[in-house]
Design a protein around this nucleic acid. Structure first.
Length: 292
DNA sequence: GTCCAGGGAATCA
DNA sequence: TGATTCCATGGA
């Protein structure tokens, strides 16, 4: 582990705020200079974007396991053509054109599967600032310390590192009713009831989803977030939370009472309109509706 | 005091 | 299958 640096010029579809504040991740924080610092897969990284007219430069700097170029290309999904994806989605209708334009700098991160599972179990009926606080406390208590630029950072705890943590301790950290779910899911994974390596190797999204649904605290929405935001990278899923239900009702369904909109109806429309890019469409719509 | 948050599980029809 | 209700917590 050593400090490394990597720079890319004129990177397409790469805006720090869009990537880190679009709701897919919880461990990236904006710094005073507008850059973002985060911890992922045992690395601590700072990402800074500088612009000069039409030219831009993104600088990745920090403590990194392995070669920083490879780590960055993988985590930030740099080898995918987002321009083409955005073009396809923009052609669907005027709403999609607007939402894609609003979130044009989004990239879907390749986040660690285990961390994504736990993070989205914590996200249930919760708000983003509080989710971030809980994950930070979990990491500080049970993760490994990494020092960078005179500051201490903490890796997300592994399943093994959470092995002996009690339900009561989770409650102390502020998890609320999610305490038992975290405890049970950790146990299921440690015991091999759900094997994460097998999930990574399985290309059948339905099978992987069904397996995720056996975990405590993982329902349809959380399972879809895991499939979309982890390194499982399934873009055909369509996570439906209160914001997505809201925006889908506003745009396409127009029911008087948005809370009574049928989930299957939303899924059907999403599949018809967005096909195997439904997950991406969901993310542009979510970010647009929540921020704009 | 009330409402809400990137929902899930238990219960009941 | 589908609809209700409860679940901790903290900020608005």
């Amino acid at each position: 582990m050593k400090e490394q640096m990597y720079e890319v010029e004129n990177l397409d579809s790469f805006e720090l705020k869009d990537i880190f504040d679009c709701g897919q991740c919880f461990r990236w924080n904006e710094q005073d200079d507008g850059s973002y610092t985060g911890v992922f897969k045992g690395n601590v990284l700072n990402v800074k974007k500088q612009e000069n007219g039409k030219e831009s430069r993104v600088t990745f700097r920090g403590m990194c396991n392995g070669d920083i170029k490879e780590v960055v290309e993988d985590y930030f999904d740099l080898n995918r053509d987002y321009g083409k994806i955005k073009e396809t989605l923009s052609k669907i209708d005027d709403n999609m054109k607007k939402s894609v334009e609003y979130g044009k700098g989004i990239r879907i991160l390749n986040q660690d599967l285990w961390e994504t599972i736990i993070s989205f179990i914590i996200s249930a009926n919760n708000n983003i600032p509080r989710i971030k606080g809980i994950i930070e406390r979990l990491s500080k208590n049970y993760g490994k310390e990494i020092e960078y630029n005179g500051k201490k950072y903490y890796t997300f705890p592994t399943a093994e590192e959470l092995k002996d943590v009690s339900v009561e301790k989770y409650r102390e950290l502020g998890l609320g009713f999610r305490d038992i779910r975290l405890y049970e899911t950790t146990k299921m994974i440690l015991d091999g009831e759900v094997n994460l390596d097998e999930l990574r190797d399985n290309q059948n999204t339905i099978e992987v989803r069904d397996k995720l649904l056996t975990l405590s605290g993982v329902g349809p929405k959380v399972a879809d977030c895991i499939l979309l935001f982890s390194d499982l990278k399934r873009f055909e899923v369509f996570p439906i939370d209160v914001w997505v239900r809201r925006v889908m009702n506003d745009l396409y369904i127009k029911n008087e009472d948005e809370t009574k909109v049928n989930k299957k109806q939303i899924e059907k429309i999403a599949k018809e309109k967005f096909g195997n890019l439904a997950g991406l469409a969901q993310q542009y719509l979510f970010y647009w509706r929540r921020e704009a």
